[in-house]
């Protein structure tokens, strides 16, 4: 079991970092640049892990990235990776969607505690922006998930995948829920127009302002693990899971490219604009989808 967990983390690390390399590369190509190599995120992470660290704000500051990484790894091990085999599904049966939804916000809250200890005003501003945005982001995503739970009559992800094998994919059966969840996923990935917490020209790097060296590397690594977990979750919930590694990469990459393309063409919302938008359009779409399930099945 331990072996499978380690293998899963390594898989997510590699795939997540290559995806982020592709993210930078595709963004560069769209902007008319040559762009960095696909492996650039590996180089960055290894370099940061080998850097010196002389900043100290007490132990709570250092716990922040650790709590974030904990949230990411726990989310990762609870999401079933393959639909047909039990491989890499070591502790999945211990959790359900409710646990996952809770764990997805564990990281930001832990980070908020740490950044508060650092006392950097840009960090605190970034955290406040992030948590405000979270109010808007969670609403459509949670409504969509509740809709799926009602439709499948279970909060077990494996069961939701199994239902899709006979009844058809959720993306076709419940398109409104998918649209609501995807808009909020764009925000969960920190893509424009919801890249408010770390907005480069406004609050420098937001919550990451005061982190350097190994802790920045840890934040980057957990980001890639978490990104992979979220992509697999979306694939499981709406695209019926993946039965092989090729299908997994194909499906997650399709979702990822969609998010990149949405992110690259839009500018950045202000905080209140983002919450305003998320509470209106995506929430309305998700509520309509939920109503369709409740009243028409």
């Amino acid at each position: 079991m331990i072996f499978q967990i380690i293998l899963l983390i390594m898989l997510a690390y590699v795939v997540g970092f290559i995806y982020f390399g592709l993210y930078r590369n595709i963004t560069a190509r769209i902007q008319g640049r040559y762009g960095p190599t696909v492996y650039q995120s590996f180089y960055d992470s290894i370099k940061l892990f080998s850097k010196n660290n002389t900043v100290s704000y007490g132990w709570m500051f250092y716990l922040g990235p650790v709590i974030m990484a904990t949230g990411a790894v726990l989310t990762l091990v609870l999401v079933p990776v393959f639909s047909d085999s039990d491989f890499l599904r070591s502790v999945t049966s211990q959790g359900n969607l409710f646990v996952l939804l809770y764990l997805m916000v564990l990281g930001p809250l832990g980070n908020a505690l740490a950044v508060g200890t650092g006392g950097n005003p840009f960090g605190v501003m970034g955290v406040v922006r992030g948590l405000t945005r979270l109010i808007g982001l969670e609403l459509p995503f949670y409504i969509a998930v509740v809709g799926l739970i009602i439709a499948a009559n279970s909060s077990d992800i494996v069961h939701i995948i199994d239902v899709q094998k006979t009844a058809g994919l959720n993306i076709i059966n419940h398109p409104l829920l998918f649209i609501g969840a995807m808009i909020s996923m764009v925000g969960f990935f920190g893509a424009s127009p919801f890249d408010i917490p770390g907005a480069p020209q406004e609050v420098y790097s937001g919550p990451r302002t005061e982190f350097s060296g190994k802790f920045l590397a840890l934040l980057m690594s957990q980001g890639s693990l978490f990104a992979f977990a979220k992509l697999v979750l979306i694939v499981d919930l709406f695209l019926g899971g993946a039965d092989s590694l090729v299908m997994l990469v194909l499906k997650t990459f399709t979702i990822f490219v969609a998010i990149i393309f949405i992110g690259i063409v839009y500018g950045r919302y202000k905080v209140e604009q983002a919450v305003d938008f998320l509470m209106k359009l995506p929430t309305l779409i998700a509520v309509l989808g939920l109503a369709r399930i409740v009243w028409f099945g």
Binding site: R33, F122, T209, E210, F211
Partner: peptide, 22 residues
């Protein structure tokens, strides 16, 4: 650093704070 000469292709990226910089 932008599209014309694009230093990012060599891994040279601008960051916001001296804490993260090399």
């Amino acid at each position: 650093f932008t599209s014309r000469y694009d230093a990012e292709r060599m891994g040279v990226v601008g960051v916001a704070t001296p804490r993260q910089a090399d």
